[in-house]
Design a protein around this nucleic acid. Structure first.
Lengths: 207, 207
DNA sequence: TAGATTGTTAATCGATTAACAATC
DNA sequence: TAGATTGTTAATCGATTAACAATC
């Protein structure tokens, strides 16, 4: 399985494949062609075969892809066969919603700690996790070697929190704050901002 | 202001510019160069100038861009100078979080109605909005001419809900369900799925 | 004026697609 | 074997960047 120089845009499609293959599996399907998978995901069969080719190809000429084994291979490539520990920093409305959401754990991302600066909420238990004082961030996280964090603090504090997280060895950040974060090379940031998405779509709306 | 054939990827960057310009404005800055804006947004100055050129260009050679007027122009292009009405379909944990979130309204997106199929929640008022029976979706939405909806129903119902929304004239969908929706041409879908983002980032993580 | 910075073009880079030999 | 479909290459398409004349 060769994996050098895979474009990021290709990597970003792999979870989409995993998700659809998982659904097909539950529906009892055994194999699928790139053509059919493409139709389900609104992409070309060429692109799918090209994407898989970066990792050596998983199919059988003439009959397509075995869904179980393809999914397993992709999950392996994406490092999904483990429970990833994750922090939440900022326990306002949004942070609380994340703590209550069980979809993360179901997909292998376990929220192991939450931090906030407000005395009103520090010490409370939310969604099974005790909220800690943000001042204890470094003390808690550095020895734990946690690689993933979600930032759900107000915009004006997001960069400072980000810096502290990066300083503690966090390498992947889910950024819910409406700001563009600056991070050193090697740290990945994904922005989750539904408002940006809406503002893009309104370009195409009349009225 | 020429606006034909603007690539979607360019349109998707415009809200990012608006957001950063808004921040700069609040900080009291008056003008900015493409170079400086690029640094703040982690992109090249060339790209920024090229993006603006699709709409005719907004700068002054030698001195850069006036922040207020650039922002106003971009907001106009994106149709942001109005309140957009928006529906939420599915009032589980996630839907309720959206109804309580005031960031949408602050940015010009007003949630005017919510729908669910569960008798337990129909009729309740959440975040200032009464939850209606999903069966009344068409009756409510068609005359209202609402263009934007958020789908927060379980994965297995998302496509059916989507079809009904599209049928009622909805043209922009914020899809929180973990499925790829099929929509006719002219309807835009934005997926909000933090798990997909996490699964992309874990590719780059060791361990 | 001199310096700065735009708007725009051409060159480069990278991603997608079409095509097809290989082969199950 | 014949039909189907992959893996892969080359061609195409589109986006980004570099460069610079125009000009504030």
């Amino acid at each position: 399985m060769k994996c050098e120089n895979v474009p990021e845009i290709v990597v970003a499609r792999l979870p989409l494949y995993v998700q659809k293959l998982n659904q097909l599996l539950r529906e009892g399907k055994g194999t699928i062609s790139s053509e059919e998978l493409g139709e389900l995901l609104n992409m070309s069969s060429s692109q799918i075969r090209r994407d898989f080719a970066y990792f050596g190809g998983f199919g059988k000429k003439g009959s397509g892809y075995e869904i179980i084994s393809l999914m397993e291979s992709l999950r392996e490539i994406l490092n999904l066969n483990q429970i990833w520990k994750m922090l939440v920093v900022g326990v306002g409305h949004l942070g609380q919603a994340l703590l209550h959401y069980n979809g993360f754990l179901r997909k292998g991302f376990e929220i192991v700690a939450a931090f906030d600066s407000s005395a009103d909420i520090i010490g409370k238990k939310i969604g099974g996790v005790v909220v800690r004082d943000i001042e204890e961030l470094e003390k808690y996280i550095c020895p734990e070697k946690i690689k993933i964090a979600a930032i759900t603090v107000p915009a004006e504090h997001a960069q400072a929190v980000c810096d502290r997280l990066v300083n503690c060895g966090v390498k992947a950040i889910l950024n819910y704050a409406p700001v563009t974060l600056q991070v050193p090379e090697g740290v990945k940031v994904s922005r989750i901002d539904p408002v940006l998405s809406l503002q893009t779509m309104t370009y195409y709306l009349q009225d």
